[in-house]
Design a protein around this nucleic acid. Structure first.
Length: 844
DNA sequence: CTAGGGTTAG
């Protein structure tokens, strides 16, 4: 918007007109016919001023014809200087003269204002016309409406509409087209459509205005279908129409449709200009056809600035920062001069790569070209330096900024979060003068990143209390928090919130929801969301396969994978992890092998060490420990602590001390070791009764300062999450839990159950073992759930470690005796207990 | 006289 132009009052003296800055006589070339007529040929304001001075000297300076010509020449130049000069002449003229001939001057000025972006001045002048009693005509309205469109001055435009209807000007194609454009820019396409429908004779501009309106207002599909409607009615498009339609295709990211439009373009013979090349490059980029876009780009002989900026920003958006920098290089050598839009892309490319060296070069360019006054540039640099790990530099730019925007604050905050300095981020979040949705999302994301899921949801509640509605980014964070917490009620609420608030559920959010329901033990809901999704990428399919894996539905997991392949989605490393995990959960040894082998042979993906880990797990769980060892020995890479740890875990399940010792020995040769492994090892020795070895490992752990992660379970009751740790607590609520637990244990014993003391991994006497076992956190949580929820309410527990076999039996027992459905999500999978049986079929 | 391209943070 214009800020530099100062509008003088309508009837004010403009004395400077008579005293132009230079005294030189104008060039004779500009004076070929009459001096007044020559005004039209002036190219610069200096020429205009000189000539006008000359005319004034001859006494014709304030003749209507002179002023009219002067105004229209100045208006056409469209600079703030020329418009100001024209305005002075106009105001001076207005002071002296009657209203004759004024209409044309007003129209010229309004047009000048409108086309140069001084929309407010244009609108104001229209209003002032009315005050002076100058009636607008059919030429006034298109200019005035275009000014209203630019600043989305809806009320003013509607008044214009009313006025022109009164004057009977509706039906004029130019005016109706301007109205369509105006309503479209205001986002009131229905009104625009009404005008369009009411037109008796539409022309190409009518169609194009409406098409463009739909394209810009998030109805690109409408735009394209309108275009084909237009073609069907026999209208010939021109380049403007094509640019609009192509940009609609870009928004749709629909390659098939794009190709149809391009086919039409080829047949139509419409000349391809630079604007269209630009639109085409943008469209192919957005459709993912990067190479095609680059080819068109390369073929273009007169690449302009915008074209460079288009390809650069698209490369950056697609994460192709290297390509962006190489185009930038070409541009610097032989292209147009980079502007601030270019630099925005360049800087974010550096940010993406974490390339502080190139980033510094950009910074230098910014300073050399005086671009540091643009806050978007500074913001991009803050982000870049933050992502390059140069926090001080980022903060320096932030501190030096004159006009820090929300984005500046958000960039710093996000930088702090990324580096793990959540405290600093929090401090800034509280200090910032105004926060917006992105600020909140960043902080909620920070809590998720720190695994503080309850706090994340709490912050989301605070945000709502402040009257800020979440968007799809917020909901991805909230959904993943629900998932990690395994809080199904909260998850259902989240889903309902999204639907109620009509939050645009894109692929990412959809995938997050599938994953959320999967982790909350509601695979039906997960699949319902999955089925409704229009677009799915590998991660979406992976989430669904994961849902089936957690449920222990190996067949469906494999079916989903086949379906994914049939639909042409390219598998990645991650989906194979989900698949192999699914096989592992149900003991699909043969299928697991097939998938594992197909990775390389069919899909061209070399198994990563994690895939070997999955296979070791699969074989190990199935009791094929020797086979697992053979696989480890045949691995093309060195086994890491995870591999040995997985093998150890299997040894524990199958009580194989021999292989466990071997694995432990191998592991001890590794330089890096995960702490959890030592715990596991000590557990294996413990369950085999080798307490000396346990003591050794425990000592080793102590030396390293490692503590065993205590078992902890949580349960959601009435929207609140309650957490229990092994051993239990003594407050009132929980002591009720203790007596409930006692009751269950009593009934268990009555039923003849003997506790499996092997599950206690401490060197204590059996009585102590039995006590500790009876107070495993999941038992506490289940007991609490029995008290805290209604008769028919399923009990859902989330556990941080793997469930032990005694607790597994306990849960089955409770589900039968108390006639309750129980779900336990441990750190590996789900168990659905119902009528004394578990969904895992005791294989886990 | 009316219609068209590129812009930072989560």
């Amino acid at each position: 918007m214009a800020t530099t132009l100062r509008l003088s009052p309508l009837v004010s003296a403009a004395p400077s007109l008579a005293a132009p800055t230079t005294q030189n006589e104008p060039k004779t070339t500009a004076m070929e016919t009459s001096p007044t007529g020559s005004l039209r040929n002036c190219k610069t304001m200096n020429e205009v001023k000189q000539l006008h001075c000359h005319i004034t000297k001859t006494g014709h300076g304030s003749k209507p014809s002179t002023v009219t010509r002067l105004i229209s020449t100045c208006a056409e130049m469209g600079t703030s200087e020329s418009l100001e000069y024209a305005r002075k002449a106009f105001d001076l003229f207005l002071g002296d003269q009657e209203t004759k001939g004024m209409l044309f001057m007003c129209n010229s000025l309004i047009r000048g204002y409108a086309s140069a972006g001084f929309s407010d001045e244009a609108i104001l002048l229209y209003v002032q016309m009315a005050v002076r009693g100058i009636l607008p005509d059919k030429f006034t309205f298109p200019f005035a409406l275009s000014a209203c469109s630019k600043v989305v001055a809806f009320c003013e435009g509607v008044q214009l509409h009313g006025a022109l209807v009164k004057m009977g000007l509706e039906g004029d194609a130019f005016i109706d087209n301007s109205l369509i454009h105006f309503y479209a820019e205001c986002g009131e396409l229905d009104y625009g459509r009404k005008v369009f429908d009411g037109m008796s004779e539409r022309n190409i501009v009518s169609w194009t205005s409406l098409i463009c309106g739909y394209a810009r207002r998030n109805s690109p599909r409408e735009a394209v279908s309108l275009f084909f409607e237009m073609v069907a009615e026999g209208f010939e498009s021109n380049s403007v129409t094509m640019v609009c339609v192509i940009s609609a295709c870009a928004k749709l990211k629909d390659l098939k449709l794009s190709e149809r439009v391009c086919a039409y373009l080829g047949e139509s013979g419409v000349k391809v200009n630079t604007l269209m090349v630009n639109a085409l490059v943008d469209m192919y980029m957005k459709c993912g056809e990067t190479d095609a876009a680059k080819r068109i780009f390369d073929e273009c002989v007169d690449k302009n600035l915008v074209l460079y900026n288009t390809i650069l920003s698209n490369y950056v958006r697609q994460g192709l920062a290297r390509e962006a920098l190489s185009v930038l290089d070409e541009m610097m050598r032989q292209g147009p001069r980079a502007d601030r839009v270019t630099l925005l892309s360049a800087i974010s490319a550096c940010a993406q790569l974490g390339d502080s060296l190139s980033g510094k070069c950009c910074h230098g360019y910014v300073i050399r070209n005086g671009l540091e006054g643009w806050d978007a540039i500074c913001n991009a640099m803050i982000d870049m330096y933050m992502k390059c790990g140069k926090q001080e530099m980022a903060c320096r730019i932030f501190d030096n900024m004159l006009n820090r925007t929300v984005v500046s604050w958000n960039s710093v905050i996000a930088g702090f979060v990324r580096s793990g300095a959540v405290k600093s981020a929090w401090q800034m979040f509280n200090e910032m003068p105004t926060s917006d949705l992105v600020s909140w999302n960043t902080m909620i994301g920070a809590l998720v990143q720190e695994s503080m899921f309850e706090e994340a949801i709490e912050l989301f509640r605070v945000m709502q209390a402040e009257g800020i509605k979440g968007d799809r980014v917020t909901m991805v964070e909230v959904a993943s928090s629900c998932g990690y917490l395994g809080a199904l009620d909260l998850a259902k609420w989240t889903h309902a919130y999204i639907e109620k608030n009509k939050i645009d559920c894109d692929m990412r959010l959809g995938t997050a929801l599938v994953d959320m329901f999967a982790r909350c033990g509601d695979p039906q809901s997960a699949m319902k969301v999955f089925d409704k999704m229009r677009r799915r990428d590998v991660s979406t399919w992976t989430a669904a396969i994961g849902a089936m894996a957690m449920e222990g539905n190996g067949e469906r997991a494999l079916e989903l994978f086949d379906e994914m392949i049939r639909q042409g989605v390219k598998p990645d490393e991650v989906v194979f992890v989900a698949l192999l995990t699914a096989c592992s959960h149900v003991g699909f040894v043969e299928q697991g092998w097939n998938i594992f082998r197909s990775m390389k042979s069919v899909h061209g993906i070399s198994p990563h060490i994690v895939h070997y880990g999955c296979m070791v797990d699969l074989l190990g769980r199935a009791g094929l420990l020797e086979e697992a060892v053979d696989l480890v020995k045949s691995m093309p890479m060195d086994p890491n602590d995870v591999i040995w740890g997985t093998l150890l875990a299997a040894c524990r399940t199958h009580k194989n001390v021999k292989i466990a010792s071997y694995a432990a020995e191998q592991m001890s040769t590794l330089s890096t070791q995960r702490t959890g492994i030592h715990v596991l090892l000590s557990n294996i020795y413990a369950s085999a009764g080798k307490w000396d070895d346990v003591a050794k490992v425990r000592l080793h752990l102590k030396e390293k300062g490692v503590h065993k992660v205590p078992g902890s379970s949580s349960i959601e009751v009435n929207g609140m999450i309650h957490e229990f740790t092994s051993g239990g607590d003594t407050n009132t609520e929980k002591s009720q839990t203790a007596s409930m637990l006692q009751e269950i244990n009593f009934r268990l014993r009555e039923a003849g159950h003997v506790p499996d003391l092997d599950n206690v991994l401490l060197d204590v006497d059996d009585k102590e073992k039995e006590y500790l076992l009876s107070r495993h956190s999941e038992k506490l949580a289940i007991a609490f759930g029995l008290i805290g929820t209604g008769q028919r309410v399923p009990i859902r527990v989330v556990k941080n470690l793997r469930m032990c076999s005694d607790c597994h039996f306990f849960a089955k027992f409770v589900s039968k005796i108390y006639n309750r459905e129980i779900t336990v999500r441990d750190n590996n999978r789900f168990h659905f207990f119902r009528q004394g049986l578990c969904s895992c079929g005791d294989y886990w």
